[in-house]
Design a protein around this nucleic acid. Structure first.
Length: 396
DNA sequence: TCTGGGGTCCTAGGACCC
DNA sequence: TCTGGGGTCCTAGGACCC
């Protein structure tokens, strides 16, 4: 058996931890730039506020004051997440953190009353860390996820739902629409419905061999998981394979120069992230796209990536390379709405031999020192104290 | 005249997740 | 006026090799 511990409405719960006045009322957390809703309290969900809803639409629909909206503070959420995970590690034999607000736990060989154990764990996380969690326990990760949804939705479970026999399993699957299953997104839902599969039980009860003729491997794994076979491995704790900085712009951008400024900022952010985690990136890619909601406007999107001659985390170098890529894909005559820079092939900065590191040792040394000084100033004196010339905003 | 095929690596795009 | 951001993995198909 295994379990999942899933924080309830995590970002909202973090805000409520430090702001008790937000408890027991509708409240949402907004994305960077306050563009869209990324977390909702139960009260906000009950009112009908949807995930990803644009902020302007929410205000339109619910009025300015009905649902307080808070600008997201990811640094704080990460800190709270660390507290939750640290506490859980002390209480469970083995834990794999799956996301900022979820962790799977191994319960193999635990012969105690799992339901009572889970209820106690949920209560003690709330008591010691101040964040509500729901727990699902089952023979596979996908079933545990489904169990945790029940624990979340129905107070009668007392924060923990256990699926430990076939009758409970079939009952839970019957009540779960296919698109609420972990691993089944929008595209697969369409395919499922086309094949008359509407609930999780419909999928589980189909033969694997028939499914294999029309569905990809990922769906076959989900099928097995729903039958109680644990077959989705947990990734070992590992450094991230990519770092991305992307934004939806509040206003559309047409000019190459303005876009170059944004791209420079994204590249600088990637470089900073890399330096903070003591890594270098070997690939950089840039994408730009128009507003797909504005069907009245001409559409264009493109992306391009490049293998760097040597891995880097230098701001100046990433900006230079990103602007080169932007130049290749930029087309005049379009209004751009979203863009970003992503770096891949990340390696530890200690793993790269000095001989591979640079071309011009002197120039490298200077750039490195410059980046380090900029990082220190910016962290001591507030963000954006010192920035590269190309990052300068036109308005500033 | 007849013009291989299997293995592997790589990449872009598609699918999913929170 | 205003429509999230940061990730992972899979797969199909091209390039290349022998």
């Amino acid at each position: 058996m295994l379990g999942i511990v899933d924080c309830d409405n995590f970002f909202v719960s973090c805000e409520r931890r430090r702001r008790p006045d937000l408890r027991n009322r509708p409240v949402v957390v907004l994305s960077a730039g306050s563009a869209a809703v990324i977390a909702r309290s139960n009260e906000a969900k009950a009112l009908g506020v949807k995930m990803g809803m644009p902020y302007f639409k929410m205000r339109e629909q619910f009025g300015e004051d009905t649902v307080p909206a808070i600008a997201g503070d990811h640094d704080y959420y990460k800190a709270v997440s660390r507290e939750v995970m640290k506490y859980l590690r002390g209480e469970t034999p083995q834990l794999w953190q799956y996301s900022i607000d979820e962790a799977f736990i191994d319960l193999k060989g635990m012969h105690l009353d799992l339901k009572a154990w889970g209820e106690r764990l949920a209560a003690s996380v709330m008591e010691h860390v101040g964040v509500p969690v729901s727990i699902g326990i089952a023979p596979s990760k996908t079933l545990a996820k489904i169990a945790s949804h029940f624990a979340k939705k129905h107070a009668g479970y007392n924060k923990c739902c256990l699926i430990d026999d076939d009758e409970k399993r079939r009952r839970a699957l019957e009540l779960t629409p296919i698109d609420e299953v972990w691993g089944i997104g929008r595209r697969y839902r369409v395919k499922m419905h086309a094949n008359d599969i509407h609930t999780a039980l419909d999928l589980a009860d189909h033969s694997r061999s028939w499914l294999s003729t029309i569905m990809p491997q990922a769906v076959l794994d989900t099928h097995d998981e729903l039958c109680g076979i644990d077959c989705i491995p947990m990734r070992e704790e590992a450094p991230n394979k990519s770092v991305a900085h992307t934004r939806t712009f509040p206003k559309m951008i047409a000019s190459r120069e303005a876009l170059a400024t944004e791209i420079s900022n994204f590249a600088a952010s990637c470089a900073l992230t890399l330096r903070r985690q003591h890594t270098l990136a070997g690939d950089v890619s840039v994408f730009i796209e128009t507003n797909s909601y504005r069907t009245d406007l001409p559409q264009y999107h493109n992306a391009k990536s490049k293998r760097l001659s040597t891995p880097t985390n230098l701001t100046a170098r990433l900006i230079e390379e990103s602007l080169g890529l932007l130049n290749d894909i930029y087309r005049p005559g379009y209004c751009y709405k979203r863009a970003g820079v992503t770096v891949h092939r990340i390696v530890s900065d200690r793993a790269v031999e000095a001989s591979l590191l640079d071309f011009d040792a002197d120039r490298f040394e200077k750039l490195n020192k410059l980046s380090a000084v900029a990082d220190r100033l910016n962290s001591e004196m507030g963000k954006r104290t010192l920035i590269m010339g190309r990052q300068m905003r036109e308005k500033e």
